[in-house]
């Protein structure tokens, strides 16, 4: 990114480091009594597509927020491109974020801008590129996600799948070294789901970037990712390649893959015994 407008800080990010992201003993909680993450270790090698899977509320999105520096760990280290995120000042953090793309759960497109302007936004804000070049780059990104014909639509005129593709094009607008996807498949029809999944894989390989996909869609993930971490109650409880996951006998992985309603992740939320509940009302 030779044309980046501001030199954010003197922090040097090592885009060639073997691991794009490393979480070492990361603990995080909004209060001390209820940790969201407990001593998580995770390694995301450069150039790979890695999924973080788990039930809702298991701490998956928190991991993305820690990688992006929106949250700071209580204990442990989050290292992105060789730099400890917690050690970065605001300028350093913004320097890091210029090289990271993120796709939010429902796209988070700017509703007052057209599709074209949404994708041009990071280019206009962060680079000195001339308008003609920005136009060409935006059209290239839109073409890559198959939406060149929708450039002048507003986000409110897009379907869920199209909005997700536009958000993907915006996330890769500046050719980031790392792209984070927060539930990219949520609420999509099967066709859109397949399209978005394939785009994530293709974009990652074409840009030579690294992708972290937070999702609970096991079938789509098994098709496109290189490695999977399973997170439950703030801990990594299983991990492996798609083939290892398919062959796994781990009860949690089996429950997740087979979609069983009860198992290591219980159907009932923790509560006092039913008999005691009724007795209390009767008394």
């Amino acid at each position: 990114m030779a044309h980046l407008k501001h030199r954010a800080s003197s922090v040097a990010f090592d885009a060639q480091s073997a691991n794009a992201v490393e979480l070492k003993g990361v603990t995080f909680g909004y209060d001390r009594r209820r940790p969201v993450l407990a001593a998580i270790d995770m390694t995301i090698p450069r150039g790979k597509v890695v999924a973080i899977m788990g039930a809702s509320g298991s701490g998956k999105t928190t991991i993305l927020r820690l990688i992006g520096g929106q949250l700071r760990p209580v204990k442990g280290r989050v290292v992105v491109a060789g730099q400890s995120v917690a050690d970065l000042d605001r300028a350093g953090l913004f320097g890091l974020r210029r090289r990271v793309g993120m796709l939010f759960q429902f796209g988070a497109l700017f509703t007052d801008l057209t599709v074209f302007e949404n994708i041009a936004f990071p280019m206009r804000e962060l680079t000195d590129l001339p308008d003609e070049l920005i136009r060409d780059l935006v059209l290239m990104k839109l073409n890559a996600v198959g939406l060149r014909g929708s450039a002048q639509l507003k986000p409110s005129e897009l379907s869920g799948g199209m909005a997700r593709r536009v958000a993907l094009a915006r996330a890769i607008a500046l050719d980031p070294m790392l792209v984070m996807y927060d539930e990219p498949f949520a609420g999509l029809d099967p066709i859109s789901l397949g399209v978005v999944g394939q785009l994530i894989r293709r974009m990652n390989d074409a840009l030579g970037s690294t992708s972290v996909v937070v999702t609970h869609d096991i079938y789509e993930s098994l098709k496109i990712v290189d490695y999977i971490y399973f997170v439950s109650e703030g801990r990594v409880i299983a991990k492996g390649t798609p083939d290892e996951v398919r062959a796994s006998t781990d009860p949690f992985v089996r429950q997740f893959v087979d979609g069983e309603p009860d198992g290591p992740v219980p159907f009932h939320v923790r509560a006092r015994p039913l008999a005691a509940e009724f007795a209390a009302h009767a008394g």
Binding site: A8, G68, Q70, F94, G95, R97, R98, V100, M102, F104, Q105, F106, A108, L109, F110, T111, F121, P122, E125, L126
Partner: peptide, 10 residues
Amino acid sequence: DQLAAMEMMA
């Protein structure tokens, strides 16, 4: 999440 998206874009 538009503000968060902006923050994440630096």
